[in-house]
Amino acid sequence: MRHILAVLVENNPGVLTRVAGLFSRRGYNIDSLTVGRTENQNISRMTIVVEGDDLVLEQVTKQLHKLIDVIKINDITSEQYVDRELVLVKVGADAAVRGEIMQIVDIFRARIVDIGQRTLIIECTGDEGKINAVIESLKSFGIKELVRTGKIAMLRGQKFTSLNETREDD
């Protein structure tokens, strides 16, 4: 089963190496890992999508906790959450097909962010399914280039993965 972990870490150099190294060293499969700063400049947040059964997940979580730089781990898989990915796709777009592409862009509420002589760059955010669908729809025009982020995710409503929450737990 795929699990989504929201992980707060100290924003120290090397923290990504520590986390990524732990996964490869112990043979855990990462689907994706994204990382960026949070509202607190000393704290970064990772969203890690990892494949494994409950036993594996228990070990992953416990081993991650052993890293001194890891502050908090939340397995949000079974909770209500919002998740997003971002993709940029450069497609072949002669004048003849531009209208058709713009329709697709509209349907997915994506955006055209660059117009070249024979290409367009399309930006789309959404959950994984939507991103897959938009890519699928654009395939026939010829995808020249594609870049995609991993997943970021956040719990809905009154549940948090935040430092304050950590403090409240104490």
């Binding site: 150099p13 090397g14 190496t17 520590r18 190294g21 060293r25």
Partner: peptide
């Protein structure tokens, strides 16, 4: 050496 010893230290500092 901090890179080398990540898996064999409890923690390390450069």
């Amino acid at each position: 050496i901090t890179g080398i010893t990540i898996p064999i230290t409890k923690h390390n500092y450069l």
